[in-house]
Amino acid sequence: MSILNRIANLTKASLHEMLNKLEDPVMMTGQYLRNLEEDLGNAENALREQRIGVSVAERKSAEAAQAAKQSELQALAALEAGDEAGARVIAAAKIRYEEQAGQYAAEAAEAKERVAELEIRLEEGKAEFERLKQKRQELAARARKVEESEQLHRPNISRGLDYGAAAKGFERMEEKILEWEAGAEVSGRSYTAGSGSPLTGASASDSAAVAEELQRMKDQLASRDK
């Protein structure tokens, strides 16, 4: 092994030893709980935003559907008055409103799925938070018992600190306390994202869809006049 490798290993070993001497298991479990509580708060905010998104999308879908119905009545009136050009423009608007209504309805459905998923995760997270709070009390009691020993030697566990998952952090702290307990016993003493832009569509004024819609309206008027 080269001198540089030996120096690097010695530096890492010294760093791990220093971290283990500074690390207080009870304090760290408290930090894990604060991290988890912050995550729960973020999840609750996200859930509120998704619920608002559902409400907005449903309202816009209903408004667009109503506008489509109104446009059809206006187009029929234009046809009755002999204004086919005007009816064509209104029929194109009706198609766009129907497209918008469909898009907003799809957005509302997607947002509802996200709401359901967030609700499940939030409930699971809250249950885990309560479980870990109880676990922390247990670990704190065990740590106090060990610290009453006159010859307490903290183990040198050369592993990095994991702040990402509260549950994993608790497991690590419990492992440390178990090692303290074992050491004390040997020495003879005790120790966890509105609605998007509506579909505008291509210009439908001269499209086949508009022509089809106009023909349907003409047929509707013809059958009504019979």
Rank of each mutant, 00 (worst) to 15 (best):
P25C: 01
S55D: 08
F129P: 02
E98Q: 14
A166D: 00
E44R: 15
S207W: 04
A184M: 05
K94F: 02
A57I: 04
D39W: 06
G194S: 12
S195G: 14
S197K: 13
A116Y: 01
K226C: 11
Q103A: 12
N156H: 10
A78V: 05
F129K: 11
A165W: 04
Q151C: 09
A106V: 06
I90A: 02
L122Q: 07
M173R: 03
A77F: 07
I120D: 05
R6P: 03
I3D: 08
A182K: 13
S14A: 15
E80Q: 13
A184G: 08
E38D: 08
L47G: 03
R172Y: 08
G102N: 11
S149T: 11
L40V: 13
A101G: 08
E110R: 13
T11M: 08
G194Y: 08
G102E: 06
L36E: 02
S207I: 07
Q74P: 06
S2E: 01
N35K: 05
G82Q: 01
D162N: 15
I120N: 08
G169D: 01
Q137S: 11
A111R: 10
E107W: 07
E72H: 09
K168Q: 11
I95E: 03
T192G: 15
W180L: 14
A106W: 01
A108M: 00
G194H: 09
A62G: 06
K12Q: 10
K145Q: 10
A13P: 05
K60H: 07
S61P: 02
G86D: 01
A8I: 13
V26H: 00
A68V: 02
E80Y: 06
L73W: 04
N5Q: 12
G30E: 04
E84Y: 03
T11A: 14
Q100W: 03
L15S: 12
A81K: 07
A141H: 03
K218A: 05
A109T: 10
E130M: 02
L47E: 00
T11E: 05
A166Y: 00
E113Q: 11
R114P: 04
Y163C: 09
R88G: 09
L15A: 12
R121W: 05
I90Y: 01
E113R: 13
K21G: 13
S55I: 13
K112C: 02
G188Y: 00
A166Q: 00
I52N: 08
A57H: 01
D162G: 13
Q134W: 01
E175P: 03
E80W: 05
E181H: 06
A106N: 04
Q215V: 09
Q151L: 09
A167E: 04
S207E: 01
S158Q: 11
E37H: 09
A208K: 14
D219T: 14
V26L: 01
E150M: 08
A208T: 14
L15R: 14
L15H: 11
